[in-house]
């Protein structure tokens, strides 16, 4: 008898934290499911012409060239202010973005450019050992989080490679936690004809990207949620 009651008591006391834990996890899961469901749904028609703060992730080389092509046709007054992020090892991309922003300022006659340029640590350099890359990945994540807290973008434009993944994941977490609702757009590189890149595949499968664009019809047939938009270059 005594044995039984003590058993019940210990059951109850050990159950309480577990119940709380399960409830919290359930709430988080429901919220994540809601965010995933809400993602991919177009935003309501805008009545005001309020611009949206925009984060542009520049990939390097061909990725940056494709992104610049896209920026050239976007109406800049709708996507303001603009924050450019490139890998710290990539010194060409931000230079190209600066040239673009300067030419915009020249053509529109606006003195002040509403653009900021930032660099982000890469989690792993080519050839780096896996042991040290655990540490550098943590540093890179902390840095990405710090930049995202500062920017809190409403729109994220990216087209790979890996640099954009931590930023997109953080943007998604911001949606879940309720810090900031953002729309994430991913354009798969023109070099991908038959298979998605790893970053593309992650953002597609995890449903992090609100809209996913591919430049070849073969890919759209394979990934039906993607939008086929033809070649950008």
């Amino acid at each position: 008898m005594e044995k039984n009651s003590s058993c019940c008591f210990s059951n109850l006391s050990s159950n309480l934290p577990i119940t709380c834990f399960v409830t919290v996890i359930a709430i988080i899961l429901v919220r994540i499911l809601y965010v995933i469901w809400r993602t991919c749904k177009p935003l309501r028609k805008r009545t005001s012409q309020q611009p949206l703060s925009t984060l542009v992730v520049l990939g390097s080389g061909g990725h940056t060239a494709e992104m610049i092509d896209l920026l050239l046709v976007l109406q800049k007054n709708k996507f303001t202010p603009r924050f450019y992020i490139a890998a710290a090892t990539d010194n060409m991309s931000l230079q190209k973005a600066r040239v673009l922003e300067n030419s915009l300022a020249d053509s529109s006659g606006v003195k002040e450019i509403s653009a900021e340029f930032m660099q982000i640590y890469r989690s792993r350099e080519v050839g780096q050992s896996y042991v040290t890359s655990v540490w550098t990945t943590l540093v890179a994540l902390a840095h990405a989080l710090w930049l995202m807290i500062k920017i809190r973008p409403q729109v994220v434009l990216c087209n790979g490679p890996g640099t954009c993944i931590p930023l997109c994941v953080i943007a998604f977490i911001f949606k879940v936690v309720g810090i900031r609702w953002s729309s994430i757009f991913y354009v798969e590189s023109i070099a991908r004809v038959k298979r998605l890149s790893l970053s593309g595949l992650l953002l597609y499968k995890l449903r992090i990207a609100d809209q996913f664009f591919v430049q070849w019809p073969q890919l759209q047939r394979k990934y039906p949620r993607a939008h086929y938009v033809g070649c950008l270059m």
Binding site: P42, K45, R46, Q75, C231, L232
Partner: peptide, 21 residues
């Protein structure tokens, strides 16, 4: 014939609820 990024820009604008020009 060189490609064109305007289809992407159109879809992004529509998604964000910006009025069509």
């Amino acid at each position: 014939s060189p490609g064109d990024a305007t289809p992407v820009a159109k879809l992004i604008n529509r998604f964000l609820g910006f009025p069509e020009d």
